[in-house]
Design a protein around this nucleic acid. Sequence first.
DNA 1: GTGGTCTAGACCACG
DNA 2: GTGGTCTAGACCACA
Lengths: 132, 132, 132, 132
Amino acid sequence: MLITINENDPRPLYAQLVANIKEQVQTGQCQPGEALPSVREVAELLGINLHTVHKAYQILRDQGVITLRLGRGAHVAPLRAHPDDPAQAEARLRDRLRESVIEAYHLGLSARDVRRLMSEELRRIETERNAS
Amino acid sequence: MLITINENDPRPLYAQLVANIKEQVQTGQCQPGEALPSVREVAELLGINLHTVHKAYQILRDQGVITLRLGRGAHVAPLRAHPDDPAQAEARLRDRLRESVIEAYHLGLSARDVRRLMSEELRRIETERNAS
Amino acid sequence: MLITINENDPRPLYAQLVANIKEQVQTGQCQPGEALPSVREVAELLGINLHTVHKAYQILRDQGVITLRLGRGAHVAPLRAHPDDPAQAEARLRDRLRESVIEAYHLGLSARDVRRLMSEELRRIETERNAS
Amino acid sequence: MLITINENDPRPLYAQLVANIKEQVQTGQCQPGEALPSVREVAELLGINLHTVHKAYQILRDQGVITLRLGRGAHVAPLRAHPDDPAQAEARLRDRLRESVIEAYHLGLSARDVRRLMSEELRRIETERNAS
DNA sequence: GTGGTCTAGACCACG
DNA sequence: GTGGTCTAGACCACA
């Protein structure tokens, strides 16, 4: 598992780590049960602070993406097949999508553009997952 | 035009104002050329500081959503029909959608759910706009 | 003489008036000695405040572009053939050009672009002047 | 990196800071990747308020001149090699140059003077950049 | 009345 | 330590 950060990304480092790992888990680049590198390894490899990595791992644990056990490191948790609370999950995503659509329109893009780009993204993630 | 903020929203106040106003402009709840309430009015109405509102208005001006003129207040700018830089606009939206899809999967939602919710949102905004 | 303002111009109204009139004088669209419309006429025509126009006229008088005489209105002053203080005039222009060059580079334009655009502008004004 | 402000300059402080830093970046007095002094340092050094400096840094970030990262300070961004939107970039510069030419004529300078001063400025910046 | 700038000082989040 | 947000209040420039 190769965790990376991007100097030009405006998000804080810990948020980049979280997003990066979630994406890799989701696209199947790392499998449930697989071990993640230790906090110390990641920090050294990326040349960042230990507690920045620690914070990212804690967030991932809180979101159920990984498991952390004392002395045994971090492991990828099994993927959620169904939402714990479907209504809440949908509401959250709905808000995100609503914001995205507003932004798209302000950028001058059309509903058609949005639909096309979303289809592309959905397809891309599916194929990445199947390839791995 | 009714601008609101939400105590529980994790975003900073100025960002909430920006999002709120962009949404109202986009859904047609206020028309191009229409005057927005003055910085002072909004600040008083919401019980927040002048500068917080001012910052939001400046951002909206920078993004081309409103015009601000010394001594003459704020007005809704005409909507962008086409992106200034289509490739860049698409890239930005693509990143947002990609993040949303990853999040959706981690919430336990399916590609089908995502598609359905997106269609609903696109339709909702269109109808709001046509209604006004 | 037709004085105009532009809603989308970020400059304050009085500054637009000043720039507009200076340009017309310079390009020969109005000749030395010619009468300018009265403060009141301009204000009514453009639907702006009397003292906004008044301020613009005062500035133009201070800069020697027009003459204002009580009861006789405003008239275009003769063009300056040579700078009153050549060193100071050059220094002022130099600062402006320096700023423009810095901006050009930050916009991603080259020295060549700057030269080309400057030549075009110089030529454009000459031809406009000769045409009138 | 030495940032300065000028009491007699009619521009607001934050705008002076922006122009000053852009010039230094452009003339190569500071290299891409190089760290800028922190907001607090600049504020203390110049005896002005934190927010004034902060605003300048934000503008520079929005214009792509520097990068700002929470907890990690400000750094010079890579220079733009080509305009994102060439037509728009040229239009902006053209307006600036047009204004400058009008001003030059009103100062009593000739087209020849303008050409000469512009050449000098272009050359000056090139040599400064090559020297560093 | 309007927006724009500057100051002063508090508090938070990130690394 | 860093940047980021919010408040409070003063003062200026424009219309």
